[in-house]
């Protein structure tokens, strides 16, 4: 099958590859770039385990073609930590026991990251709506919601201090 060359920015770094038109973004990230943090849970856009950020929006990378990301900016879980320091969301997920098996976690984190860009101070209900496209079977979502709200607070405080 004919291949298309694509160039994009992934986690702040330039990335390039040659993909088939049907190659999904999740497969490009996992197989060509070796970024296995984003997971495949259903390939039908129901579960959200593959959620990444594409051009400032949350997308389910199992239902985006890699060619659609050409020229774009992608953020995955591997890009959240900066300078060896955990992102406040990652720190909160750890501190608040916001994960168990950890399979939904990368998608959940990246989705939460976008949610907090859109709404830096969400209520419980707003967080629940905001992550309702990401399924978790272990936690009952309780500590995920708690961690996102605590991270939001930490991020607001950090912002205010700057």
């Amino acid at each position: 099958m004919a291949k298309t060359d694509i160039k994009l920015t992934v986690n702040g770094q330039e990335a390039a590859g040659s993909v088939e038109p049907r190659t999904l973004l999740i497969h490009f990230l996992r197989e060509q770039l070796g970024l296995t943090g984003s997971h495949i849970g259903c390939e039908t856009s129901h579960c959200g385990a593959c959620t990444v950020d594409l051009n400032g929006k949350s997308v389910k990378s199992c239902t985006v073609f890699a060619v659609q990301a050409d020229g774009g900016e992608v953020l995955t879980v591997e890009g959240l930590a900066q300078g060896g320091e955990l992102h406040p969301l990652q720190a909160a997920f750890a501190e608040d026991h916001g994960l168990q098996c950890g399979f939904c976690t990368p998608g959940m984190l990246v989705r939460a990251h976008r949610l907090l860009q859109e709404n830096p101070d969400p209520s419980d209900a707003e967080v629940r709506v905001g992550i309702s496209g990401n399924l978790c079977r272990c936690t009952g979502y309780q500590n995920i919601v708690k961690a996102i709200r605590n991270a939001a607070q930490a991020m607001r405080e950090k912002e205010a201090a700057q």
Partner: peptide
């Protein structure tokens, strides 16, 4: 096991 999972490193 949590720090690794929270970074997508597991």
């Amino acid at each position: 096991d949590v720090p690794g999972k929270a970074q997508g490193r597991t």
